[in-house]
């Protein structure tokens, strides 16, 4: 409340109190604990650090985490757009239910999602038993990990694309239709350019979430070192073996990559926000 007296241009009270609490809590709960990873890692020499994070098993786990998260985000890019498109533009029975189901991955605990997906895609599961004779192994393979990450990432794409599609609905397209543009051309030259920023944001969010995801993946992945072991699980394994140094070094690499992705997402959103203001 003191802020308002000191700085006369601030009409509203409470800047000092709200800002103070925000910084205090952010520092105490998030920034200081996160810095522990880098302080601990700095205890290693560069050579030791490099050796730890480039060990074959560690590299394999990064590769699996990144590739599965990338493919899952790619699938969500296509199907997330499709689901958002259908929800915004068409009428069909059960539409409200489908719209609610999109948020399920946000609300369902990841471990529950993990055991449920495993039950379905395991070789004796509902869908797995039809795929098994075809020679497609879903559970306990990278495909299973990808499916878990598709589940986790779906709402990120749908919920970033949906509002943009809704706004487009009304103005731009009407203009294109009045000018007599063909459907396919309307989509290519009017709708798609507007959709690219939210699609990129949704993709990056789903990708970032997928890299770090643990709960939904560990049940379906089978956790075989070099083959289906994701990076977060390797951190867990090292912790259980009391190899704190190893776990922390792997975590440091993941954190840096996640931060870069977060910066990219915020930049994309900031740019999208600026475009709206400019218009």
């Amino acid at each position: 409340m003191k802020g308002s007296k000191r700085k006369s241009r601030r009409v509203l009270p409470g800047f000092g109190l709200s800002m103070g609490f925000t910084i205090f809590y952010l520092g105490l709960l998030v920034l200081i604990p996160l810095s522990a990873v880098f302080i601990k890692t700095s205890g290693l020499s560069w050579g030791e650090f490099w050796e730890t994070v480039t060990a074959p098993r560690v590299l394999a786990s990064y590769k699996i985490s990144f590739l599965t998260a990338f493919f899952a985000a790619l699938v969500n890019l296509v199907f997330g757009l499709l689901v958002a498109w259908v929800l915004v533009r068409y009428q069909f029975p059960g539409k409200r239910l489908v719209d609610s189901l999109v948020d399920l991955p946000f609300a369902l605990p990841t471990a529950v999602a993990g055991i449920a997906l495993t039950a379905i895609y395991a070789p004796n599961g509902w869908i797995g038993k039809f795929l098994e004779p075809l020679g497609i192994k879903v559970a306990f393979s990278p495909i299973g990990i990808t499916i878990a990450l598709i589940f986790i990432g779906l709402p990120f794409v749908v919920r970033t694309v949906q509002p943009v599609l809704q706004d487009l609905e009304k103005d731009t397209e009407e203009a294109a239709a009045m000018l007599g543009a063909y459907r396919a051309r309307t989509f290519r030259s009017v709708i798609l350019p507007e959709l690219i920023p939210p699609l990129l944001t949704g993709f990056a969010m789903a990708f970032a979430r997928g890299i770090g995801e643990y709960g939904s993946v560990v049940f379906i992945s089978g956790n075989m070192p070099m083959k289906t072991e994701i990076a977060p699980l390797l951190i867990m394994t090292k912790l259980e073996q009391y190899d704190y140094m190893g776990a922390t070094a792997i975590a440091a690499v993941m954190l840096v990559l996640s931060f870069l992705l977060l910066l990219l997402i915020n930049y994309l959103q900031w740019r999208a926000g600026r475009r709206v203001i400019a218009e």
Binding site: V37, L255, L263
Partner: peptide, 22 residues
């Protein structure tokens, strides 16, 4: 605002690890 988003970008396993380190 970016700093507030940080925990979204951190793997849950790392979120646990940092408190073990402390």
């Amino acid at each position: 605002v970016t700093l507030i988003d940080l925990p979204f970008a951190v793997s849950p396993v790392i979120a646990g690890l940092i408190f073990v380190l402390l």
